[in-house]
Every structure is written in structure tokens, then in C-alpha cells.
């Protein structure tokens, strides 16, 4: 979600570049003003540059530093941690938690995205035809997304409570068996995924809805003159024309879902056992989740997560460039 305006940047920049053109005729004067305005530009960007170095680059460097040393709490205070090279990474890869966490991350991420996207798209199509109250109802759909994650997560935790949760009470009222949603290793991951799907629907709805707004209405008119029904129109017009927006929505969702900690941590703390532990949760638990902080493996897992996020991130950028090139 933080990454949405990502796209703004590239768009804005291309527009900014185009904006230099009007100044071009007066070339000699431009050179002088450019260099003095270049100083001004650096001056205005300076706070950001300092900020990025101090509060992005430096913490990230410390993070890499953590991952190649053996930091215990004592070494942390005294600052004499032993250099161990890539040993922490080797430990992470050979840990029994690694395959579980990787698998859970994949299930959690792809499960969340698949349902968020499908439901978001269905709702976007539904809300596209305006009807009485449609604007108000669509605005109400934003609520889950604006609530603090900890609020939503604790609400879901109580709803899924084994003995007193509303979900089980409905299930048993219809003659079903009580399900230990959060405490049974078989359903813990499912439970947090359901909560996360709910959280992501608004984001998908909003972006896909505005994507739909950009499809010209006369395409549909022509199609219905040709006798194409709603179903046919969706598959042969809406879906193909929405593909670029869909791709970006899904990738932003991937980048965002990979990082999720709050929801899972509040609902299950990654348990029982490792059954709902994702890579992000694993890293958080090693560093902050127990009484015995173990920063070095946590940092190694974290760096692994960055690599995965960057792969999807670059995919996103490529896609966007291609889209810009074609339009």
C-alpha cells in the first residue's frame, strides 16, 4: 500500500522531463540559470538526501552488519560481536523452520492475493454500474483498510476464538463441529490468511474500480449491440483491457503481503509451533518475539526477505516501463 504512488513518481518524472522543452530556445541563458537552479535543486533535495542516508542506508547497513556477526545481547551492548561471515545464512537455510516458513509465506501470499484480487475485481465490476447508495457503500468498503491493523487483527482473533467466538457459534448452531481456528496447526495459517484477505479487499477494489473507470463506455455499447451478454462482455472486454492495471495491483499486493507481520503476530504469533510462521514473522520472532533476542539470524532472514521483495519490485518496474512504452 505504501508503494502505490510508486507509479506516480515515474509518471511525474516523465512529465517533468517534458516540461524542460519550453525553456529550450534560449539556450545560452538557460545554461546559466540551470547551473544556479541546480544548486537550488540540490538545496531543496538536501534534507531528503540526508534523511535517506541516515534513516534508510545506515539502518540497512547495520542490518547487514548484524547478519554477518554473531550478536548476542551482551555483544550488542559491548559491541564486540564475533565476525562469522555467512554462517548465519547457512544456519537459516539449514534450519528446520526454513522450509516451513518459505512454504507458509508462499501459501499466505498467493492465497491472500488470489482471493483479494478476485473479490476486489468482482466488487469493482458490481459497483461500476451506479445505483442508489453505490458511492456511499463503496466508501464504506474502505473502512477495514483504514483501521489500525492491530485493531482488525484482535477483532478477528476474538471472532475466531474457539469457545466464545462468533464464527464457531454460527458453525455449531448449524450443527457443525467446533473448529479451533487459531490453536489447531491445520487451520492457523488459514485463519490469518482469511483475515488478511479481508484487509486487502478495499485496496484491490479501489484500484481496480478506477481502472474500470478508464475503459471507455462505448466499447460496451458496441458489444451489447452485437448481442454480447454481461458474462461475455466481462471476459472479452473488461478483463483484457484491465490487464495492465491488474498486473500492477497484484504485484503491489505481493510486495505488501510479503512484509505482513502485525496481523499474524497478533492472531497466532506464528504458532502453534511454526504452523503460521512466515519469513517476516520468523525474523520478527527471532529478534523481538522472545525473551532472548537473537538479532543475527533474524537479520539474515530479513535480508532474504528484502531480496524476494526486490525481485517482485523489479518485475513491477519492468511492467510499468513496458506499459509506458506502449501507451
Amino acid at each position: 500500500m505504501t508503494s502505490t504512488p510508486a507509479d506516480v513518481g515515474t509518471r511525474g518524472e516523465s512529465r517533468g522531463a517534458a516540461g524542460t522543452e519550453p525553456a529550450a530556445p534560449s539556450a545560452p541563458r538557460r545554461r546559466r540559470t540551470l547551473s544556479s537552479s541546480q544548486w537550488a535543486a540540490v538545496g531543496f533535495a538536501a534534507p531528503l538526501l540526508v534523511y535517506l542516508v541516515l534513516f534508510y542506508a545506515y539502518p540497512l547497513m547495520r542490518n547487514i552488519d548484524l547478519s554477518v556477526h554473531d550478536y548476542t545481547i551482551r555483544a550488542f551492548v559491548q559491541g564486540n560481536a564475533e565476525f562469522v561471515g555467512l554462517q548465519n545464512y547457512v544456519d537459516v537455510f539449514s534450519s528446520s523452520t526454513f522450509p516451513t516458513a518459505l512454504w507458509n509465506t508462499a501459501v499466505f501470499t498467493f492465497g491472500s492475493i488470489a482471493f483479494q484480487f478476485t473479490l476486489g475485481l468482482a466488487l469493482a465490476v458490481f459497483f461500476k454500474s451506479s445505483f442508489r447508495l453505490s458511492t456511499t457503500l463503496r466508501a464504506m468498503f474502505l473502512v477495514p483498510w483504514l483501521l489500525p491493523l492491530i485493531v482488525s487483527a484482535s477483532t478477528w482473533a476474538w471472532m475466531l476464538n474457539s469457545e466464545n467466538g462468533i464464527v464457531n457459534s454460527v458453525i455449531t448452531a448449524f450443527g457443525g463441529e467446533q473448529i479451533n481456528w487459531l490453536t489447531d496447526p491445520d487451520t492457523a495459517l488459514l485463519s490469518v490468511t482469511i483475515a488478511n484477505i479481508w484487509l486487502g479487499i478495499p485496496f484491490n477494489l479501489v484500484i481496480l474500480y478506477s481502472g474500470l473507470q478508464n475503459i471507455p463506455g462505448d466499447v460496451y455499447e458496441a458489444a451489447s449491440l452485437d448481442g454480447a451478454g454481461a458474462w461475455r462482455q466481462f471476459w472479452s472486454i473488461t478483463f483484457p483491457l484491465l490487464r495492465p492495471v491488474s498486473a500492477i495491483t497484484i504485484l503491489l499486493g505481493l510486495i505488501y503481503t510479503l512484509k505482513v507481520v502485525d496481523v499474524i503476530w497478533v492472531m497466532t504469533t506464528g504458532g502453534p509451533g511454526d504452523s503460521s510462521t512466515t519469513l517476516a514473522i520468523w525474523s520478527y520472532r527471532e529478534a523481538f518475539g522472545t525473551g532472548q533476542p537473537d538479532f543475527s539470524p533474524a537479520a539474515a532472514v530479513g535480508n532474504l526477505l528484502i531480496v524476494i521483495a526486490l525481485v517482485f519490485g523489479f518485475l513491477h518496474l519492468r511492467l510499468q516501463h513496458r506499459q509506458e512504452a506502449t501507451s
Binding site: A6, Y56, P59, L60, M61, I255, A280, F295, L305, L310
Partner: peptide
């Protein structure tokens, strides 16, 4: 601009560890 895009992809848990240190 590119760096800012990359910055947005960094998981908060990683930043938290860096900030802690």
C-alpha cells in the same frame, strides 16, 4: 526516484532491526 521505489519495498521488520541497532 528509483531509490525511493526500492525504499518502499523494504519490509518494516528489517528496518525495525536496523533502527534498533
Amino acid at each position: 526516484n528509483f531509490l525511493l521505489l526500492v525504499a518502499q519495498m523494504i519490509p518494516a521488520v528489517v528496518m525495525a532491526m536496523g533502527f534498533y541497532a
